[in-house]
């Protein structure tokens, strides 16, 4: 692909590349993520909140045959639908970050999920200089594998992005349920 970047910003055998990215086309943050993801050679699917066509024509088939991690920046309603579907295919939300522009001019990012992903995403967020969309795209090219049972939440504050975000967006990663997951019977 023309303009595609070579190699990922990370190298680690315990990392995996997102199969594609899902983008809310009305969101400047998501569009920045989309542009950068394409640069990294990721396939980008655009939606306008409703995931029906994407799910029916792509994800259903893909998740049935070869479930792979997927990253996105969407509205929470889109993620709710994807997350609910994901369970039926043995997939889980590994990570989510809820973004909100605050009245004091700062942006707030509430990160939650697998602790390795949260830790690394938090570091990325702090250093992204307000350009979370770009940072998250590079993150999606080399995701740490989710481990079970280590969930955490972090709140990160950054400078607000230079554009108006019409609605709060969510960044997320969905991936296969960790195979070693089992719980104590208590």
């Amino acid at each position: 692909m023309a303009g595609e970047r070579e190699g990922a910003p990370y190298s680690n055998s315990e990392r995996v590349r997102s199969g594609a990215v899902i983008v809310e086309m009305t969101s400047p943050l998501a569009l920045a993520f989309r542009a950068e993801s394409i640069q990294w050679g990721l396939t980008a699917h655009g939606i306008h909140d409703d995931i029906t066509d994407l799910w029916y024509h792509h994800l259903d088939r893909q998740w049935r045959t070869a479930p792979a991690p997927l990253a996105g920046i969407t509205l929470s309603t889109s993620l709710f639908c994807l997350e609910t579907f994901a369970r039926d295919y043995g997939m889980r939300v590994w990570f989510r970050a809820v973004h909100k522009n605050r009245p004091d001019g700062l942006a707030e990012h509430v990160l939650s999920g697998d602790e390795r992903l949260v830790e690394q995403a938090a570091a990325l967020c702090r250093g992204c200089d307000g350009e979370w969309g770009r940072a998250f795209a590079s993150f999606a090219t080399a995701l740490p594998l989710a481990k079970s049972g280590k969930i955490q939440q972090k709140i990160v504050e950054t400078a607000a992005p230079p554009y108006e975000e019409p609605r709060p967006m969510v960044s997320w990663i969905i991936g296969p349920r960790p195979r070693n997951q089992s719980g104590p019977i208590s």
């Binding site: 889980r92 079970s148 049972g149 195979r179 719980g183 019977i185 208590s186």
Partner: peptide, 28 residues
């Protein structure tokens, strides 16, 4: 009881396979 439940889970695993019995907090 915990013992009876553990026994049930083991039998469920024997019927449907370990991957299809969910007991972790995250899964349930």
């Amino acid at each position: 009881s915990a013992g009876t439940f553990a026994g049930a889970v083991k039998q469920f695993q024997g019927i449907v396979g370990k991957d299809w019995v969910f007991t972790s907090d995250e899964d349930v």
